[in-house]
Design a protein around this nucleic acid. Sequence first.
DNA 1: TGACCAAGCGCC
DNA 2: AAAGGGCGCTTGGTCA
Length: 517
Amino acid sequence: MVAGETVLRVGEAPLPGPPARAVRELEEERPRWVWADTRESYPPLIEAGVRVARCHDLALTEGLLLAYEGRHGESRSARAAHARSRGLPAPDEQPSVPGTLFEPEPLPAAAVAEVLAGQLRRIDALPDPGRFRLLVAAESAGALIAAEMGHDGMPWRRDAHDALLTELLGPRPVHGMRPARLQALADEVAAAFGHPVNPDSVQQLVKAFKGAGVALKTTRSWELKRIDHPAVAPLLAYKELARLFSFHGWAWADQWVRGGRFRPEYVVGGVVSGRWATSGGGALQIPKVMRRVVMADDGWTLVVADAAQLEPRVLAAMAGDAGLARAAGEIDLYAALAQAFGGERDHAKIAMLSAMYGGTSGDAAKLLAVMRQRFPKAYQFVEDAAKSGEDGRLVRSWLGRTSPPPSGRWRELVSGPEGGRAARDRGRFTRNFVVQATAAEWALALMAVLRGLLPDPARLVFFQHDEVIVHCPLGQAGEVMAAVSAAAAEASRLLFGATPVRFPMETVAVSCYADAK
DNA sequence: TGACCAAGCGCC
DNA sequence: AAAGGGCGCTTGGTCA
């Protein structure tokens, strides 16, 4: 990894100063660029028409290393200090870590080289440096992809979006007003109670239902559905549409859609498990009904690819459970498991999900007993992760991403009268962490490989945990679909080497995202 | 007035 | 579809 490193003098010149021409020339040697923060250094290059193949993101790597060393909070506080120094909002007010990466002034090349050397030394000292290097490479590739997707954007038809909103809500209202359909539903709710009630106010709703002789603890929709009262039906319809209006309505589009593209801000490693988050635009929570406004450009297509049953396959590969791995060699893993569960595919699915998530309800206990007997290594793998969490220890993903340590508050709680509850909660978290974090690593590796295989001008335009969308000319659809398949195979090889577990992708080329499912 | 929390629900 | 873990985002409501 050290060979062929190229250290860029980060941020030496004021923006738009990164020497795009120099980067373009050096890129022919395919170096691994080293910089403090991809989010600062890469967008100006993209803007200048330059894309790089590989990088080492010092900030992301530092976060991974600190977490591994049990200093999870310090990367957050260091990031906060860094953010403040740039005049950005700081996520928390932890005391900052002096020295190292996040100086308010740009790092000179010598400092970049020094920080890099220190990180590489720390990685070399790990029990499995090869895996951690893969994690660092994948995380850094993710940073490149996130910046590029933020620039390229996902096709988003504003005319179709407006038509959909108008169909569901009525025409766009003037600022501060409810759309006609929402107002009509609010009026129906009020009429059902016989007096005005703000359907957005939990307090008012609980009070109104109480006045009507209905005792409610919450106004969650599943609880409302069990109630027989004329206000329920319009209220449920109101809640659903109000959410569309305020979360993904016209104002949202004004802010996030420009030039026919939706450009969210992805946050690589924004979730402790390594999943991505967004810091705006809500890209990871777009309602399914909105998928019909995501349409390929004329003459282009959307290749939508989804990893099928990713998490149980990851568990099978990690645990080295021969029986589960054999089932995970099939396209429908749960169907392959059904035989072990009395021929019931659904029972197999509940057993697997309960094992990975710590479920206890319904038939879970009985089905888990079957799993323990038939797939002992897979069962033990997640049980061990749960036990580690309950004991306050750290757990790690396959490549070494590490869970945060328990808080001081948790340690107090766990030795108190309600300690069992706190311990079990953390056990569920760590049980899920090892699977979810490794699934996130696999997905990251898939994207990194896929990015390198895509023919120009095909572009990755969307990523959501285990699903990617590529926007490409119609004539490239076949090549892109083959690239997805090859990338999945390569991601599996990179993480797990020779394994009987398969990681099939469900891939389709469509002109509209809504047609993908 | 702004900061902050809780509720609720969208996605995986 | 359920079950669970993980998030982001908006609103109403409280408090300084």
